[in-house]
Design a protein around this nucleic acid. Structure first.
Lengths: 335, 335
DNA sequence: GTGAAAGCGCTAACAA
DNA sequence: TTGTTAGCGCTTTCAC
């Protein structure tokens, strides 16, 4: 049931069996074959605890998420997972469980238990204590999503993202553009919403457009929130000709609200989002797409390299690009 | 940096420190306090590998998913996670990576490495070899979602689910009901789609309704698939008065298709789904809701109990209930 | 209430 | 190419 059994059955020593099992080149091919065969017959299952204890490497990386059920996190998780799987690493998922989750305990209790060799933090903002605690653990770590003080991150440049969106709308002749953003209370990196909004405001002002306060709306980064914000917007007088949403989910909500308000899209109002959510493709939503799966892969690659001793690298922003579909169009003559 | 340091600093023995750290009652309270204080000062972090090796318990459970980015799996994962966190267990995520993922390797390589004490399989159908291999590992295991041969499962009764839907529509006067289902290629338990469809066919026939083949459509369990199937349906002549979808995502697609076809909902056609997807609430989708988070919690509870030696229990079906919103209504007079 | 010592199953020098 | 010998950091009898 352990390496020892195989040793006695084959008449070899534990060490040779261990080496053979790992296919080390210093072992005779015939020996390797024999050991593997016997291992199979015996139904041998390696113990990662023992291996980990002996080597100090767990062959696992931890992924820390503020909450699980958000489009971005799920996609990024997929990417991290794919890369880890390729490299033969296991993935330990640490969910902070939202703002009400007991982060402290989660931190000490598990993440630091030497159970993982590196940490990928999804869009996470840590406070001082948390950072200090993690630093102590000397794990390589990286964050995906918004920038985090003192940690490297892989992610798009959110200011640029908003610039791309405004470019597109402005190019279509839009001068009256509303923004729906806000904060995702359950834990999106607080920086991202600000960056997208600031990028928007900047871009709009750079083009000399006016931006009344009532066109800066809060959609809580959710479908329902986007719908609610847009309903309010559409119910008032003085409509914008375009609505830029800081996420596709909110934009989908805006589309719903427009339909309910009897507004045609893009006839009466153009709508666009950010992300590249699957639903967007089928409803024809124009968006600034990013690739969170690729970001996840990238982060995992970097972590694996550093576990293997590579020097920490700094990372350029990930690409984001405009995907023009059918929810944006030229501003209607007469408006 | 280990238990030994604490021992030398406090002048106690390794064993006492170990006991104190775990708060065992045979240790003097003062000693416990002292040990804990010193541990904190030293920044002690326990090694789960060492503890696992010594005890044979990893305090971790594995969750195996066919793919990650599906609503149901994500929700169930949340539930499992919440319960594990409560109990101080870690969650190791094994993603089979869809049908093209190299399941074999995934199985042997990681899942069985004694890294976890139990396994929660999400909506998974295993082949003989896989089952045999897992059985060998002697882990407690359970599946969430569709029934799986030879394994316990927690999940709704999918035949009943479809019955509830047909009940509702029939009660509104609908006699011409189409069904959109199909298979989710990327790995949903193949049994679930069949059960929902069979439940539908059964219920419809029990009420003496006719069901032409062309009203049994394939929506691939996705938003885009539902939209495509419904577009085809709405483009033909001889419309049903209601469409029952085996998932909310497909139903959302149907809503989109109806809008595009110029059909009013529920005026021209009633639409309903299954699941309880968040988006459904904001668009007003009638559905048969289930609670995958609760199912995840339940599965995790059972696993934890069995790790602690509880006898395997068998589980009653999880509840599912009709949520009537605004996409279903009485069949229009004259139809 | 505490300590000494023997592992848990593997890897990694160091020899041979 | 293979074997010997120590551990990795913790838990757990068994004594005291």
């Amino acid at each position: 049931m352990g390496i020892q059994e195989i040793a006695t059955v084959t008449g070899l020593s534990k060490s040779t069996v261990s080496r053979a099992l790992r296919g080390m080149s210093s072992v005779a091919d015939t020996t390797i074959d024999q050991v593997r065969r016997v291992a199979d017959e015996l139904g041998y299952v390696p113990s990662s605890a023992a291996a980990g204890l002996a080597t100090g490497r767990q062959r696992a990386v931890g992924v820390v998420v503020p909450v699980i059920d958000r489009w971005f996190y799920v996609k990024a998780l997929c990417g991290v997972d794919a890369e880890l799987r390729r490299a033969g690493y296991d993935l330990v998922l640490y969910n902070l469980g939202g703002p009400r989750g007991d982060r402290d305990r989660a931190f000490r209790r598990s993440m630091l238990r030497h159970r993982v060799d590196a940490l990928v933090l999804l869009s996470l903002v840590l406070d001082e204590t948390e950072r200090a605690e993690l630093e102590l653990s000397r794990h390589p770590m990286i964050v995906i999503g918004g920038p985090a003080p003192g940690l490297r991150n892989v992610g798009v440049d959110d200011v640029v993202v908003s610039g791309l969106a405004v470019d597109h709308l402005h190019g279509l002749g839009h001068r009256d553009i509303a923004y729906i953003g806000g904060q995702d209370e359950d834990g999106m990196n607080v920086a991202v919403p600000y960056l997208r909004r600031d990028g928007f405001v900047e871009a709009v002002q750079a083009r000399g457009l006016t931006l009344p306060d009532r066109w800066l709306l809060d959609g809580r980064f959710s479908f329902a929130g986007g719908a609610a914000a847009a309903s309010a917007l559409f119910a008032g007088g003085d409509l914008p000709t375009a609505v830029y949403c800081a996420s596709d989910e909110m934009a989908l909500g805006v589309l719903l609200a427009a339909q309910r308000a009897g507004l045609s899209v893009p006839g009466d109002v153009s709508v666009m989002g950010v992300d590249g959510h699957e639903y967007g493709a089928t409803v024809g939503l124009t968006t600034v797409a990013q690739d969170p799966v690729a970001q996840g892969r990238r982060a995992a690659q970097v972590m694996i390299a550093e576990i293997d001793g590579a020097a920490p690298v700094s990372l350029p922003p990930e690409p984001a690009h405009l995907v023009i579909r059918s929810t944006t169009g030229p501003v209607r003559a007469g408006r």
